[in-house]
């Protein structure tokens, strides 16, 4: 026992010495000196920057604001175990530290933001994917059903077998809207199209967003029954769809995957599958985050419900894969109809 204490004390002393030696540099030196500092506080949902989908889309918006306006940014991230009090405390810490705007990424912050926003009336808050009713909150919501409609038209046009698939993440209304839009788009082009749908988990099952193994098996099952185009709106699980498509021979064999949120064709994390990604449904979280920051920099902060739909280019489809070009005409035609109001895309299927 005494030896352990001896070893422990030696180690501890060593650490203290090292601590004393290490230079005490200031870690926060990202400010661009010439501009009056707008300090952006960004609270990610769990996963944070680098998750390959949703949070990364917000990160892209911030990065653009940093290069354009030289704003200072502090990014914090939710833990899986967070309840509302922890989430509220995170937002409160940012606001109290002078960060303005404070942007909450994800609907899980709804209750926390509703509590904190009134405490800091001078601070501009924003929340992605939810609506918080307070004068200093910009609620950033997306017409995902419209973007999904467009990729649905592409899927139905590109499919040789007349069978297409949809892989959803957690079975919640947010994701059902993707499915609804996709099915309406596909049926608009081909009323006889067969659509297979699989969700990776019920509401409340957080593993649904990160179960590529499940998504792979689900996609394989779809491919076995003749499906040749699959759209995944499932966060990190989407990787499994790409793997299954690649295993089936990929685009050379007529199988295509459709990405979601970010432009997965150009996403480094999807580089090995890019040739099989015909398009992606773009949900421009980056644009919304950028616009919020820009509005604060310009001195006219956004507030209220900000609906990022097709007309505002808040959603859309990606044309970065040249293979989509022959199909783009169809999608663009419907896009114009949606923007003009001729077609109204429903967020539900019934």
């Amino acid at each position: 026992m005494r030896r352990i204490i001896k070893i422990a004390s030696v180690l501890f002393a060593g650490a203290l010495v090292l601590a004393a030696c290490s230079s005490s540099e200031d870690t926060s030196t990202d400010t661009a000196p010439e501009t009056p500092a707008v300090k952006v506080g960004l609270a990610y949902d769990s996963g944070g920057r680098g998750d390959g989908t949703f949070n990364d889309a917000a990160a892209a918006g911030v990065d653009r604001a940093v290069t354009e306006f030289g704003v200072e940014v502090n990014e914090v991230e939710a833990a899986d175990s967070d309840g509302d009090p922890e989430r509220a405390e995170r937002l409160r810490l940012l606001a109290a530290d002078g960060y303005n705007p404070v942007i909450a990424v994800g609907f899980a912050y709804s209750a926390a933001l509703a509590e904190v926003a009134p405490e800091f009336p001078e601070t501009t808050f924003a929340i992605v994917d939810s609506v918080v009713d307070a004068p200093n909150v910009a609620s950033l919501i997306f017409a995902a059903e419209q973007g999904s409609f467009l990729v649905g038209t592409i899927a139905a046009t590109a499919s040789k077998s007349g069978k297409i698939g949809f892989i959803g993440g957690m079975e919640i209304d947010l994701i059902r809207a993707f499915q609804a839009g996709y099915e309406q788009g596909a049926r608009a082009v081909n009323p006889d199209v067969e659509i297979q749908v699989q969700y990776m988990g019920p509401a409340g099952d957080n593993t649904a967003w990160n179960a590529p193994d499940k998504a792979k098996i689900a996609t394989e099952g779809m491919i076995d029954s003749g499906v040749d185009i699959v759209y995944a709106a499932a966060g990190g699980s989407g990787l499994g769809m790409h793997q299954a498509i690649a295993a089936a021979g990929g685009s050379a064999a007529g199988y295509w995957g459709i990405g979601v949120d970010s432009d997965e064709y150009v996403l480094p994390a999807r580089a090995e599958f890019k040739d099989n990604i015909i398009t992606s449904m773009l949900k421009r979280v980056d644009v919304s985050v950028y616009e919020v920051i820009k509005s604060v920099v310009d001195g006219a902060p956004l507030s209220g419900v900000q609906n990022f739909d097709l007309s505002r280019e808040g959603v859309g489809y990606s044309a970065s894969n040249p293979a989509v070009a022959p199909l783009a005409a169809v999608a663009d035609e419907y896009s114009a109809k949606i923007v003009s109001g001729e077609i109204v895309v429903s967020t539900t299927l019934d």
Partner: peptide
């Protein structure tokens, strides 16, 4: 544990007993 998650998801469905407390939150 997994069965509980499924059961809760069922109970929380708006068609069963759940209600929408905020946009996208059931």
């Amino acid at each position: 544990n997994f069965i509980a998650i499924g059961l809760i998801a069922y109970l929380m469905a708006p068609s069963v007993l759940g209600v929408q407390t905020a946009e996208n939150v059931i």
